[in-house]
Amino acid sequence: MYKRLELHNHTTESDGSLTPAALIDFLQKDKVDAFAITDHNTISGHGKIKEFLIKNSSPISCIYGMEYTTYYGHILCFNLTEYVPWENINIHKPELLFAAAREKGALVGVAHPFSYGHPFARGCRFDMEIHDFNSFDFIEIFNNLEPLHEVNERGLIWWEELVLKGYPLAFTCGMDLHGSWDMSNHYATYIEGTLDGDISEELETAIRHQRTWISRGPLLVAAVEKEKEDITFTIADTGKPGYLHEDSDPYYLSIRTKKGILTKEISVRIPAVVTLKELEYEPILLPKLYHKDTRIENLIAVAPAIKL
């Protein structure tokens, strides 16, 4: 099964307007399977959320984390169960903090890397100089309420360029919730899991193996058949509330490689088959799903990178 995750959320423990209990209630009503608590520079909400979930036998799962919020950029951490000090953050060596968080078992990622910075929102843009792109685990390629072209499209392209260079980076997205905001037709992160699976372990597996999806509604799923030298792409419904799509609008499959982009029409009823020959036997493929046309405004889903 595919699980919908909301991986960037704040409460009254930092600068959000929802208490931990209110955040849980809000996300459950929107049919979220699991969420991350990522308050700014504090894990004070962890205990309150654990207590609430146990007391109320809530079906939703929590991924415990934090957002390191500095003057040089924001760093998301998932599965961070112990506060890691960051007072000596170095704009020229973010790898030091990446390593410290990873040593505690955390998954480490760059949040909204191209967000507006000074003078609009000092510190939101990621201005740290990364020298080792193997030193962290993922990039938040879409922060839903940020500008599409100036911020999110640049984040997507940055991730694509790094993966095409061979770096094993996963991607996520987030609402960056600070209140009861409308999540209709926005991107959510999806991973594979089981009904009673441990969400922290499932997220760890997904990010370590670059098996995350983001989507506003349906997922783009690939099945590689190396013996036949082809890949079959299908569209899987997630039932995400608020997804908007007209039946008359065609879907398009787009696959980016180092050599270019291949585009094919695809249907929810008829899979699209792509041969490795069409892709010039490129070893890394980056599939995306669009509707109407392949402008960024009509991007529906980003699928995991395919490495042949």
Rank of each mutant, 00 (worst) to 15 (best):
Asp176Met: 04
Pro119Thr: 02
Phe120Thr: 12
Arg122Gly: 04
Ser135Phe: 03
Asp132Gly: 04
Met128Glu: 06
Phe138Pro: 01
Ser180Leu: 06
Pro168Tyr: 06
Ile157Cys: 01
Met183Ser: 12
Glu146Gln: 15
Phe133Tyr: 15
Asn185Lys: 12
Leu177Pro: 02
Phe142Gln: 14
Ser184Phe: 07
Ser184Met: 04
Glu150Phe: 11
Asp176Pro: 05
Phe138Glu: 01
Phe136Trp: 05
Gly166Ala: 12
Cys173Gln: 04
Leu145Glu: 08
Leu156Thr: 04
Tyr167Cys: 05
Asp176Glu: 08
Asn152Asp: 12
Tyr167Arg: 04
Arg154Ala: 08
Phe142Pro: 00
Trp181Tyr: 13
Trp159Gln: 05
Ala170Met: 08
Cys124Val: 00
Trp158Asn: 00
Gly166Asn: 12
Asp176Val: 05
Gly155Ala: 07
Met128Tyr: 13
Ile157Thr: 10
Trp181Phe: 12
Asn185Trp: 13
Asn134Met: 03
Glu129Trp: 06
Met128Phe: 13
Asp176Ala: 08
Cys124Glu: 06
Asp127Gln: 10
Met128Pro: 04
Asn152Glu: 09
Pro147Cys: 13
Thr172Asp: 05
Glu160Trp: 07
Val151Trp: 00
Trp159Thr: 02
Gly174Met: 10
Gly179Lys: 11
Leu169Lys: 05
Pro168Trp: 05
Glu146His: 15
Pro168Glu: 04
Phe126Ile: 02
Ile139His: 03
Pro168Val: 02
Cys173Met: 09
Ile157Ser: 10
Ser184Glu: 13
Phe142Leu: 14
Gly179Val: 09
Glu140Ala: 07
Cys173Ala: 09
Phe120Ala: 13
Leu148Thr: 13
Asn143Leu: 08
Phe142Asn: 15
Asn143Arg: 09
Phe171Met: 02
Glu150Cys: 10
Glu153Gly: 04
Ile141Gly: 02
Gly166Lys: 12
Met128Ser: 06
Gly155Arg: 07
Ile130His: 06
Ser180Pro: 15
Gly174Pro: 10
Asp132Leu: 03
Asn152Gly: 08
Leu164Trp: 07
Ser180Phe: 07
Met128Val: 02
Asp132Met: 05
His149Ser: 08
Cys124Tyr: 03
Ala121Tyr: 03
Arg125Asp: 01
Ser180Asn: 12
Cys173Ser: 11
His131Trp: 05
Gly174Thr: 09
Ala170Cys: 08
Phe126His: 03
Arg125Glu: 11
Gly155Pro: 09
Ile141Ser: 03
Glu150Arg: 15
Glu153Ala: 13
Gly123Pro: 06
Trp181His: 13
Phe171Gln: 01
